[in-house]
Amino acid sequence: MEFSTNELIWAIINFVVFFALLRLFLYRPVLKLLDARREEIRNNLAQAETARQEAEAARAEYERQAVKARDEAQAVISRAQATADKTKDELLSQAQKQSQEMIERAQKAITSEKDRALNEIRQEIADLAVMAASKVVERSLDVEQHREMVNDLVKKMPGSAGKAN
């Protein structure tokens, strides 16, 4: 194994020539091509990406609008519902009030009717009592004494305390 300067110099010359020519014939054109292709692919990918983003945006918009429409319909329905509920409540309470009033009126009428009937009955009883009494006693009483006696009697009758007229 010898070290020969001749071969060393030749190797440097040959390799430098080889390197320069390969750069010219291989690396420069092929790398340029590969870079161009890479660039193209990158562009295509970027375009695809843009298209995808646009489609995505359109879909989002459509979805947004659909949601909006649904919300609006919901609002209309709930408004109608609320109105209906309110009307129903009003009608109900009105009817309740009316029936209450009717009941009250009827009760009042019943009460006054009862009072009138009671008075009439009381009068009747008093007269009957006087009549009966005069028949029993067969003596005429002085009218004043008589009335006083009857009134006493009436006062003692149940349900008529202080209600003499």
Binding site: F3, L8, A11
Partner: peptide
């Protein structure tokens, strides 16, 4: 074989 000569490999190493 060029690489069986030390001069050649030394030339490459010099590069």
């Amino acid at each position: 074989a060029p690489t069986s000569n030390w001069g050649v490999t030394a030339g490459l190493a010099a590069v």
